[in-house]
C-alpha cells in the first residue's frame, strides 16, 4: 500500500491518492508512515523536476496534493509526532520594491519538502527586516528573490547591510528570479545565483554539507 501511495503521489493521481489516504487512515495505519511516504514522493517529484521531466505545473500540483493529504492526516496525528527533524534554517524573501512571489513560494515549498526549516519574510522586504531575521534565526543561509531590474540595487543594499551589521561572513547568500543572472550575483556581491527552485535546494544542500 505504501509503495502505491508514493507512486500515486509522485505521478500526481489526485483521486486515487486521496482514496488510498482515506483507506490507510480507516485501517488505523500509523499516520507517521503516511508522512514518511509524503517525503519519499516529494523526493521523486524533485528529481523529476531537476531531470526536466516535471515542470512548474507538476510542482504546484504536487504541493496541492500534499496539502490535501495533510488535511486528511493531520486530525489523526499525535502532537509530538508532527515535528520532523530539519536539516537547518534558511531565510528567504523578495527584496524591497518588488512584490513578486511566485518564485519565492516555490522555493519555499521545495526547501521545505527537502527538509529545511524555512522562514519566508514575504515580498517587498525592507533591508532592516532581513538583517533582523538573520540575527533572530541565526540561519546560515539567505535566499534573495527579485523579478524586476530595480531588485539589482535592492539586493546589493541588502547584502551591504548584512556586511555592515557584521553578519555577512557567517551567511551564504543565494539570489534568483526573473532578470537575475551571474552578472547580477557579482553586482550584488552574493555567493551564488540559482536558476530555479531545485537550484536553491542544491545550493542549500551544498552549504549545509548534505550529500
Amino acid at each position: 500500500m505504501s509503495g502505491d501511495f508514493v507512486n500515486l503521489m509522485a505521478d500526481l493521481k489526485e483521486e486515487e491518492l486521496l482514496a488510498l489516504t482515506k483507506k490507510r487512515l480507516e485501517a488505523k495505519e500509523d499516520p507517521q508512515k503516511i508522512l514518511d511516504d509524503n517525503t519519499k514522493a516529494m523526493a521523486i517529484v524533485g528529481k523529476r523536476f531537476a531531470g526536466g521531466e516535471y515542470f512548474l505545473p507538476e510542482l504546484v500540483f504536487s504541493g496541492e496534493l500534499l496539502k490535501q493529504v495533510m488535511a486528511l492526516v493531520t486530525p489523526h496525528l499525535k502532537q509530538s509526532s508532527a515535528k520532523a527533524k530539519k536539516i537547518g534554517k534558511v531565510v528567504i524573501g523578495t527584496v524591497a520594491g518588488d512584490i513578486h512571489d511566485i518564485g519565492l513560494n516555490i522555493v519555499e515549498f521545495m526547501l521545505d519538502v527537502n527538509g529545511y526549516d524555512v522562514t519566508s519574510l514575504g515580498v517587498d522586504v525592507p533591508v532592516e527586516k532581513f538583517v533582523q531575521a538573520m540575527k533572530d534565526t541565526k540561519s546560515p543561509v539567505l535566499g534573495l528573490s527579485g523579478f524586476l531590474t530595480p531588485a539589482f540595487d535592492a539586493m546589493k543594499e541588502t547584502v551591504e547591510a548584512l556586511e555592515k551589521a557584521g553578519l555577512r561572513k557567517d551567511i551564504k547568500i543565494m539570489i534568483g528570479g526573473g532578470q537575475m543572472d551571474d552578472e547580477v550575483r557579482k553586482y550584488a556581491k552574493a555567493d551564488a545565483f540559482g536558476k530555479d527552485a531545485m537550484a536553491a535546494v542544491s545550493l542549500a544542500n551544498k552549504w549545509f554539507g548534505v550529500k
Binding site: 520594491g97 518588488d98 512584490i99 511566485i102 517587498d124 524586476l148 530595480p150
Partner: peptide, 14 residues
Amino acid sequence: HGLSKNTLSYQAVE
C-alpha cells in the same frame, strides 16, 4: 499605492 514612493515600476497583483 502599495509600493514605496521611489519604486520605479508598477507591479501586478496576482
